[in-house]
Design a protein around this nucleic acid. Sequence first.
DNA 1: CCGTTCACG
DNA 2: ACGTACGTGAACGGG
Length: 593
Amino acid sequence: MKNEIDKWLKEAEENGEIVIDTETTSLNPHLADLVGISLSTKIGRACYIPIGHKNGQCLNQEKVIKRLKPILEDKSIKKIGQNIKFDFIVLRNRGIKMNSMEDTMLMSYVLDAGKNRHNMDTLSEIHLNHKTIAFKDLVGSGKKEINFSEVEINKAMLYAAEDADITYRLYKIFQKNLKLEKLINIYELFEKPLIEILANMEIIGIKVDSNFLENLSIKFDKKIKNLESEIYKLANKEFNIASPKQLGAIIYNDLKIAVLKRTKKGSFATSASVLEDLTFKGHKFPKLILDWRQVSKLKNTYSDSLREHINPKTNRVHTSFLLAATTTGRLASSDPNLQNIPIKSEDGKEIRKAFIAEKGFTLISADYNQIEMRILADLADVKELKKAFKKNEDIHSLTASQVFNVDINEVNQDIRRKAKAINFGIIYGISQYGLAKQIMVSNNEAESFLNSYFLKFPEIKDYMNKTIKFCRRTGYVNNIFGRRSYISGINDKNYNVRNFQERAAINAPIQGSASEIMRLAMIRLNKKIKNMKIKMLLQIHDELIFEAPNNEVKNLCKLIQEEMISVKDSDLHSFATPLTVDINTGDNWGILH
DNA sequence: CCGTTCACG
DNA sequence: ACGTACGTGAACGGG
């Protein structure tokens, strides 16, 4: 049996590449134990090494790991996988530091973001016209679902070997296509380096104070109970507040607070924006619901759930960063999502205080200031915007003075707020209707704001028209660095679908270019700090969180800031607009802003 | 398993 | 006349 493995590894050395796929006890790589490993060195042929099945004859785990390690750590041998960051983390927890990794999921993402998903079942059907053995067929579903370690070895072998073979076939196809489409650089420079960087961030995790969260839960629970009794009193009955159906019946049928409003699909409309309108009618009920919703959200999604994600061995939370989830190049985060931790409300900010630095360490937050507006200035070559950023002016105040025709020193809070909403709207692909709703002015007013906006910044209108035109012709848009986002439905005959896609087309290059800048910054920073005590912990789109030894904080802040700003001038693109980075430090995430 | 709601950038 | 701001993930209800 051992000679058998040696044969595969020898072929890997000869070919300079090997496909690897790990089967484990969990889809969460931080909790997963190895059950088996499949390998392929030639199309149409793959093997399965069972090492953790509960039933049947397995090979000795330690011996297999020891035998595989030198090959997986040999830089001259490519390791090819589908979502290989998962396998990297699983193997890293067993002492193997895999390198020279290739990932078919990321190749597909670079080629086809926005066109289809990038899981193997989808890719196999699209590119190989082959329906794979489903994971569900092996483990079942619902009550009868079993763990992968309980799957019969013979069945697991067929499944795992198929996956390795399909991965190899996909790799060959994508390799060719990336060159053909001239997208190989995006894959090499923006995707591959992130695999190990993100894996290490996930493995390190961030420390979370469980007791602090528990106390918050108790505090939130009291608030919820108080609100509930008030709500039931006004409703004259008890009901499930979390059910829009029941809530709508109370609002529109029992209390008759307002004329019936429905969602697109016909159910009662009870969203925050609707309830906010109703609070203006002087009734106490909608406000109570809004408060209840907010506190319930904080308790259910954060103070309760976050505690369950704390790894008892590390006292830290280990998220998963998703590299191939968005259509624009942004990352996503899950299990738990650490990119949407509350900040806007006072109660919400409390959650952030639970994220703390290790003793003797400090958290450092570094965020790009106004990165999307800066990219827009560059992307659309907006003279006035570029000038303003070079002079380090407040961009919303400038917009306000231009749109509302007042001196920049006479901009008040109200028109600055409106100007800020316009700037956001521009990035999202504005409509007068959307703007009107957002800042609560009439359609006509919103229209006149936009007219004077485009008069002052005519290049932005040109960019929008040009982008949509390009997208209609090609079906996709490019960002500054050449990443492609497919926009399906840009030529749809349905007006609403089409408009929606047009806004997405305008937004994708802006959001996407910003995400690329952050990727470059992470890669540069990683090179600088990889042998230091400071650790990169989180990325929240335009912000990075680090944990650094107290006595090094001052110097490291400078280093981080310099590296992030210097991305402005890379071999790939040079910005005329300067980047600025705000730095904050503290012993918890709550005081970083 | 989908729709609704809401947390973030 | 139409009626949505762009990109996500998680929790929950209800069929």
